[in-house]
C-alpha cells in the first residue's frame, strides 16, 4: 500500500519581478514527500532553495502549479488560511533563529500556541509541554533565559522546540546549522535525527554534504529546477 504523501507538488513555480528583472526562483518543481521522510535540499546560492521552503512552509503562495499539503490544496489560499495551516501543520526553523527578543525561552516556545485555534490549551498545560520540549532539546535549565543570554546553538534549539509545540505534520528547516560552529551544528543535527526516528517529516536545506548524507533523500536544485535526486538508501 502506498504511504500517504505529506507534500505533493505539481509543476510548482514562483516568479519574482517582470520584464528584464523577471526571475523564476522556482521553475516547475514536481516532488512527492512521504510521511516520516528526512529530505535534504541542496544547490548553489540563488538556486531557489529558500523560495521553495517558503512555499512548502506556506509563508508564500506559488505563481503557478499545485501544492498539496497533507491532502489540502494550499496553492490558492488567502493569507488568513495560510496562517491557519502554518499554525496547525508546520514548524519552521530559520538560519537566523528568529526568536522574539527580550522574551524567555519558555515564552518563545509557547508563542505558536497563542495563535493556534484548534489547540485551545490552558496556560498551565502549554507551559508543561514547552518545558518538556525544551528538556528534549537539552535546555531544561535555560527556561527563563532570553535569547541574548543564549549561544547560537542554544537559540536554534529553542527554535526547534518552538517548531514542535503545535505537533506539526512536518518540520521545514532552512539552513538550520548555517550560522553555527561544527559542534553546535552537530547537536542540532542530532536532535533532528532523533525527531526523524520518531517519524517526524523533515525538509531541510543545507550546503553541507556530510549533513545531507544523514537524510533519506537529497534533492539538488539548480536555477529553480530539480537537477538530481539522490536516495541515500537508509
Amino acid at each position: 500500500m502506498e504511504r500517504r504523501a505529506v507534500i505533493e507538488t505539481r509543476d510548482l513555480s514562483k516568479v519574482y519581478g517582470a520584464g528584464d528583472t523577471r526571475v523564476a526562483a522556482v521553475d516547475g518543481i514536481s516532488i512527492r514527500i512521504e510521511r516520516g521522510e528526512f529530505i535534504a535540499v541542496m544547490g548553489p546560492s540563488g538556486s531557489g532553495k529558500s523560495t521553495l521552503m517558503y512555499i512548502l512552509g506556506c509563508l508564500a503562495t506559488p505563481s503557478s502549479g499545485k501544492y498539496f499539503l497533507d491532502g489540502e490544496d494550499a496553492s490558492n489560499m488567502n493569507r488568513r488560511e495560510l496562517a491557519f495551516i502554518r499554525s496547525r501543520k508546520i514548524g519552521f526553523i530559520f538560519q537566523s533563529y528568529n526568536l522574539l527578543a527580550r522574551t524567555t525561552a519558555l515564552r518563545n516556545v509557547t508563542l505558536p500556541l497563542l495563535y493556534n485555534r484548534s489547540l485551545r490549551s490552558e496556560a498551565k498545560t502549554s507551559d508543561t509541554k514547552a518545558r518538556r520540549l525544551l528538556e528534549l532539546v537539552g535546555l531544561g535549565d535555560r527556561l527563563h533565559h532570553e535569547p541574548h543570554e543564549l549561544s547560537g546553538g542554544q537559540q536554534q534549539r529553542v527554535a526547534i522546540a518552538r517548531a514542535l509545540i503545535n505537533d506539526p505534520v512536518m518540520i521545514i528547516a532552512d539552513e538550520p546549522t548555517g550560522n553555527l560552529d561544527s559542534h553546535s551544528g552537530e547537536e542540532v543535527m542530532r536532535i533532528l535525527q532523533d525527531l526523524h526516528r520518531k517519524e517526524v517529516t523533515i525538509v531541510m536545506v543545507t550546503h553541507n554534504p556530510r549533513i545531507a548524507s544523514e537524510a533519506t533523500r537529497s534533492i539538488h536544485l539548480s536555477d529553480g529546477r530539480i537537477a538530481d535526486i539522490v536516495q541515500n538508501g537508509k
Binding site: 493569507r79 488568513r80 502554518r86 499554525s87 519552521f92 528568529n98 522574539l100 497563542l114 495563535y115
Partner: peptide, 16 residues
C-alpha cells in the same frame, strides 16, 4: 517588523 514576521510565521493571522 521582524517581530511581526516571526508572529506570522508561527501562525498569527492578519487580523491577529
Amino acid at each position: 517588523t521582524r517581530e511581526i514576521g516571526i508572529r506570522q510565521a508561527v501562525g498569527a493571522t492578519p487580523s491577529d
